[in-house]
């Protein structure tokens, strides 16, 4: 318990530091960044958008830095991340809120499926090492070293195209109104197949390899020999002794990869123009939409921290050695 509290305190501190840096960065840009932005956009910005920029860069008032800082936290507490100026007048929180579910569902589901399948296959490959399963290892090694986006580009080039079942971009048929009906959901699933397969194929190999290697390492431990010597059924030795111990690093890796869901598959979303957070960040950066960028970074930072905390909790749960008495 004390362990968890210590970690929690650490993450809270990290979150505070990240958010504080988020506050200072726009204020440290020398000169008048708003003016240069306004001139770059050549009158395309509304006055409201310009005002929101001034607020962001702390150039709107004569308040002291401290007052601005307090204000910043007050706004955060209300979920107010300012106004996006590419999607003006939508607030940043709303723009992010629209994109987040796409990423969470696509990448979340594929990450979970890839972890479960990959770990399962890794257990098998590790336990039956020396059998035909080992013949598949070079393939998985190759796949795990191929970048996501490259696989995505290949998938689009080969499978998508005019008349193909697989759409090459977007999250749903253009013109459909997002709603929880069968037409829209069907279209969304159809659009998610290629990006999902891309992520699945290239991330699953990593789980297979790491689990297989851990299984091989653990198989040489004394307690595995003891388990055999006890005459326990093969299944029990493989699962309850070998896999149970080999799982520890993989599960921690899984918890961490959950934190990367939000930002980690940016390139896949870009390749497929998928309406998720990664693609949104890409557009925000190209359009120099500072409030939006800031908001997305904030979401990414927080999700990484939450995932770290989750990894700690999971580890605590799975490995009694991390539990301290009292």
């Amino acid at each position: 318990m004390t362990f968890l509290l210590r970690r929690l305190a650490f993450y809270l501190f990290t979150a505070w530091a990240a958010l504080t840096i988020n506050f200072f960065i726009p204020r440290m840009i020398p000169g008048d960044p708003v003016k240069s932005l306004v001139s770059r956009f050549q009158g395309q910005l509304s006055t409201d958008a310009i005002h929101s920029l001034y607020v962001l860069f702390g150039l709107d008032s004569d308040d002291s830095l401290w007052d601005q800082y307090v204000d910043y936290w007050r706004q955060l507490a209300h979920g107010d991340l300012g106004l996006s100026f590419t999607a003006f007048p939508s607030p940043v929180s709303e723009v992010i809120g629209d994109a987040l579910p796409w990423t969470l569902i696509l990448v979340g589901v594929t990450t979970a499926v890839s972890f479960v399948l990959g770990t399962g296959l890794g257990v098998l490959a590790g336990w039956r090492r020396g059998s035909w399963v080992d013949g598949l290892l070079p393939v998985t090694t190759f796949l795990s070293s191929v970048p996501y986006f490259w696989l995505g580009l290949v998938a689009i080039a080969v499978l998508a195209g005019p008349g193909s079942f697989f759409p090459s971009s977007g999250g749903y048929e253009p013109g459909l109104v997002p709603a929880l009906d069968s037409i829209f959901l069907g279209s969304a699933v159809q659009h998610s197949l290629l990006p999902a397969a891309t992520i699945l194929i290239s991330s699953m190999s990593g789980w297979i390899l790491s689990m297989r290697n851990m299984m091989v390492t653990v198989a040489a431990e004394d307690y595995i020999t003891v388990a055999h010597a006890k005459g326990l059924p093969e299944r029990r030795v493989a699962m309850s002794y070998a896999a149970r111990n080999a799982l520890l690093p993989n599960v921690a890796g899984f918890a961490l990869s959950l934190g990367l869901i939000v930002g980690g598959t940016l390139l896949v979303e870009i390749v497929f123009s998928y309406p998720g957070l990664g693609f949104l960040l890409f557009r925000a950066v190209s359009a120099k939409d500072y409030p939006l960028m800031q908001g997305i970074f904030l979401v990414i930072t927080l999700s990484v921290l939450v995932a770290n905390l989750l990894a700690d909790v999971v580890y605590l749960f799975l490995d009694p050695r991390t539990r301290k008495e009292g």
Partner: peptide, 24 residues
């Protein structure tokens, strides 16, 4: 062999420290 092991002949190993599964 599985039935024979431990029931007829059991072993205490050299690596006593690591003979117990740490997670159970």
């Amino acid at each position: 062999l599985r039935a024979f092991r431990w029931a007829e002949t059991s072993i205490v190993f050299q690596g006593a420290m690591n003979s117990l599964n740490p997670v159970h």
